[in-house]
Structures are given as structure tokens and as C-alpha cells.
């Protein structure tokens, strides 16, 4: 108020509203930029601590179990039904061209390059991301994070790093399982519904894998694409979950918000990053 009095003339209400709006926008923008900075600081620290003592090996193994082994069920189901529906849809589509024998190619290409990583990522984001956010969030609101700090432990090193490391390892593993199960599911439908012999199906799968060329002369480019993505998605899921979990405030309600934000943000990030990563990988892999 005092500041206004020093000005030459009183401002009209609309001017006042405008300046308030600008101020609000300004503070919103500042806090968003700050959040993004904090996100990357957390990402950097949790990755850096993978190589710094002390190593919480027990926690890493426990998280691998939590993130990897316990997600196996949903990933198996996701993979199986995705592969089956892909085979079903493509058998109908390909029939119009009389090309049903290429079902294997289509299923393998879609699973390995796109659907395997993205769907495994989304499922893990829903199951594991929410779990991490809820756990760290409740630890935050019950002062357990402060307690860690007080007991001389860096909470990022103790809590975030093991989760990030476990996700970096386990999401690619889950993706491979997802891919394999999906292609097997496709095989099932191709032979049952479209009458494609299993040997033919697998031959076309193989054709698809080698058709994309090789990196270093041995690793099929499809695999490079299909394994770079889950690695990145694993980082996105775990870092996003730790980020929202560790900055939880406002009691149990805050824990709910943190969980929701984690699932929404990491799912969207997965889909957006997937597009740009695909474009990048295609341009790199096609270069030579």
C-alpha cells in the first residue's frame, strides 16, 4: 500500500488487477523454474551417488525386488495381451493385402521398438512410481526424512539413489520380458486365428529384427532402440517419484497429491520423451 501512495497518481482498478496478475504470473514462473532446477539437481545427485560411498547395497537389492520382481505379474499380462491384440488387428489389416504371413514382422517391430518399452514404462510408473512417492511422502510428513538427516544420513543417497539404480536396471529387464511375452502372444493368435505356422511366424520376427541394420555390426538397431528407451524411462519414473515424494507437504492429503502428480507427470514425460528419443535414435542409427 505504502508503495502505491508514493506514486504520482492513483491507479485504476483494471491497472491494479493487471499488475496483480503479472505479479502472480511472475511468482508462478519463478517457482516453476525453481522446481525444474530442483528436479535436475535431484536427478544429478541421485545418479552421482551411485558411485559414491557409502553404498546401500541392501536397499538396492530390496528395491530391485520391489520394482522388478513384484512388477513381473502386471508386465507379463500387459505384454501377453498387447501382443495378442496386435496380432489380431494386423491379421485383419494384412488380410486385405493378402499379407497375413507378415504378422510376425509387425508384432515384433511394434513390440520391440515402441509398445514394449512404453507400456512397461507406463505400467511401472503406475505401480512403482506411485508406491515410491507414497512411501517417501509419508516418510516426509512423519519427519522420518528429517530424522535421517539428523542421524547423519543423506536422504537422497539412502532413499533416492537405490530406487533410481534399481529402476535403471529393472525397467529394461521388465521391457525385455514384456517384448518376449508379447511376441509369444502374437504367435499364439497368429497360429490360432490366422493359421500362420509357428516356424513362419518366427522367421518373419527374425527378418524384422535384422532388417533394421546393426550397431557395431552385432547389435540389431531395433534392440538398441528398444533398450535405450526403458533405461531412460526407468530414470524418469524413479526420479519423478522421488522428487514429488521428498517434497511432500501438508500431511496425508499431501501424500495423495504427491502420488497423483508422480503418476501423471511420469506418464506424460514417458510419452513425450519417447517421441523425441525415437526421432533422435532413428537419426543416429540411420546415419552410417
Amino acid at each position: 500500500m505504502r508503495r502505491e501512495e508514493t506514486r504520482g497518481r492513483a491507479r485504476t482498478p483494471s491497472e491494479k488487477r493487471l499488475s496483480e496478475l503479472i505479479l502472480r504470473l511472475n511468482s508462478r514462473a519463478k517457482s516453476s523454474v525453481l522446481s525444474i532446477q530442483e528436479y535436475f539437481v535431484l536427478a544429478w545427485n541421485s545418479l552421482r551417488f551411485i558411485f559414491a560411498r557409502p553404498f546401500y547395497t541392501g536397499d538396492v537389492i530390496q528395491q530391485m525386488d520391489e520394482i522388478g520382481v513384484k512388477s513381473l505379474g502386471i508386465v507379463l499380462l500387459t505384454g501377453l495381451f498387447t501382443g495378442m491384440v496386435l496380432a489380431l488387428q494386423s491379421s485383419v489389416q494384412l488380410q486385405t493385402f493378402g499379407a497375413t504371413m507378415y504378422i510376425g514382422r509387425l508384432v515384433a517391430g511394434s513390440m520391440i521398438r515402441e509398445l514394449g518399452p512404453v507400456l512397461a514404462g507406463l505400467m511401472v510408473a503406475g505401480r512403482v512410481g506411485s508406491g515410491i512417492a507414497a512411501q517417501l511422502g509419508s516418510m516426509k510428513v512423519t519427519e522420518q526424512i528429517d530424522a535421517l538427516n539428523t542421524l547423519g544420513t543423506d536422504p537422497i543417497k539412502k532413499l533416492a539413489t537405490p530406487r533410481v539404480l534399481a529402476a535403471l536396471v529393472m525397467v529394461p529387464v521388465l521391457t525385455i520380458i514384456n517384448d518376449v511375452v508379447g511376441i509369444v502372444g502374437g504367435n499364439l493368435i497368429a497360429s490360432l486365428m490366422a493359421g500362420i505356422p509357428t516356424s513362419l511366424y518366427w522367421r518373419t520376427v527374425w527378418e524384422q529384427i535384422i532388417s533394421g541394420g546393426f550397431t557395431f555390426g552385432v547389435i540389431p538397431n531395433d534392440f538398441v532402440q528398444g533398450l535405450t528407451k526403458p533405461f531412460v524411462f526407468g530414470a524418469i519414473i524413479s526420479i519423478t517419484a522421488c522428487f514429488f515424494g521428498l517434497r511432500t507437504s501438508g500431511g496425508t492429503e499431501g501424500v495423495g497429491h504427491a502420488t497423483t502428480k508422480t503418476v501423471v507427470t511420469s506418464s506424460i514425460l514417458i510419452l513425450v520423451v519417447d517421441y523425441f528419443l525415437t526421432q533422435l535414435l532413428l537419426s543416429i542409427l540411420a546415419a552410417p
Binding site: M139, T142, E143, Q144, D146, A147, T150
Partner: peptide, 12 residues
């Protein structure tokens, strides 16, 4: 320093 938190803040 040893700190005792309001809700004990034991690791659950």
C-alpha cells in the same frame, strides 16, 4: 546431537 521428534519419527 541426538534428536527426538514430536511423533518419534521412527523408520516404520
Amino acid at each position: 546431537m541426538g534428536m527426538v521428534f514430536q511423533g518419534a519419527a521412527l523408520f516404520d
